[in-house]
Design a protein around this nucleic acid. Sequence first.
DNA 1: TCCGATTCTGGAATGACATTCCAGTCCGTG
DNA 2: CACGGACTGGAATGTCATTCCAGAATCGGA
Lengths: 228, 228
Amino acid sequence: MPQTPAKGRTARLSREVVAAAAVELLDEHGERGLTFKLLTERLKTGAGALYWHVANKDDLVRLAADRVMGDALTGGADASLHTLALAIYDTFERHPWAASHIGVVPPQPNALRLLDRIGTLVAKTTLPPERHFVTATAIFNFVTSVTAQESSNAATAAPGGSRDTVLAELAAQWEALDPDAFPFLTRAAADLRDHDDRDQFVAGLDLLLDGLRLQELKLDTATDPDRP
Amino acid sequence: MPQTPAKGRTARLSREVVAAAAVELLDEHGERGLTFKLLTERLKTGAGALYWHVANKDDLVRLAADRVMGDALTGGADASLHTLALAIYDTFERHPWAASHIGVVPPQPNALRLLDRIGTLVAKTTLPPERHFVTATAIFNFVTSVTAQESSNAATAAPGGSRDTVLAELAAQWEALDPDAFPFLTRAAADLRDHDDRDQFVAGLDLLLDGLRLQELKLDTATDPDRP
DNA sequence: TCCGATTCTGGAATGACATTCCAGTCCGTG
DNA sequence: CACGGACTGGAATGTCATTCCAGAATCGGA
């Protein structure tokens, strides 16, 4: 009679249900806080049941992350590379554990969707077709990698004192550095103190997209008849 | 007499020695393969001794990663943002576990050195001073984040069949996708198959640095007397 | 409706680790 | 050469992921 009276049992388990619960727990406790014990309690089941649906914890987290990516792609953000990238950033800011699992190989379904969307937008530029792949991938890498780093940093910094406090302390350290060894940082301390993470992401994004424009320009003039 | 005849004892432990051994083991076995047990064996000591020098495993890995960053900065790569970024990429490609620990807050000593170098180079552009911080940070984020992702992917992909095999399989999957749902990927499969990771990094870097140039140009013309 | 095969479940082992504790040892100083 | 703090080795602890397996649910066919 190892079986309990089979009552509180949640309807039926499925890969989807497990993934959804994982996202919840991940949001609540972060990646380190997700344990199979917690998950079995939340889903009122046992470890074996979970392992029937997912191969292991990595598989589970990848699945959860791809589900978040699915959400990000659902929003009507499609118009331009700029809005698409920002939609990704904003979504992952709400799920800081997720971004670092997006760029992994092999890519999960929704990561592929993102890359395809980026590629399709890149294909609309005047860049020559043979540059489409590297360019699209570069943008994809930028968006996923930088988002991963910034969001996980935001999550790490938060627990110990408010973000402002942490930044203030860090800025103070920068100011105290030797100006000869760190000429830039000592000057930039103030900027660090009151920078905004999202603005920071946008700055990088604009840099990258401006690069795209310049490369278009270069090619336009390169094909101009009037040249050496 | 829990003490053994005190003979094979390695000279003397220190934070540096522990870090160096950690780098070795990390290179050999990857991040998952580094355990305190292995480390005690390599250093012929006990866990307590290690914990006297490092706070915990995170601390240890951060320390090891910053040591790698130190190496990267030692090479005479300083001339331009381009060569500096490539020096970083090349170094971390040899230590794929390390890059993901560089961008973390609070920044470790050598990460600060890198940011300062980037900032100093940015300060030499014609960008207005108030853009220096965001620009430098954007470049720093790009280099560390993208390197982290690419290098860890390379390390992950390698174990299962050669890189070429993995790419070929992936490319085959892309080709098999529905062309309506994935118009870009189905076309790009061939590019994926024979792309080069380093070229890919360079493509992104060039995009970013071209963006820097375009922003300089914009400002130059913006301050020109002849405008609307 | 009953039956066997297949799909799923719950929970009890198992085995790896990180981390803590502490009894000692080593070494520089006075 | 005795003292105290720096340092060491290794045993003990507790937390997890993962495996195993005895059964329960479910479903298609007879």
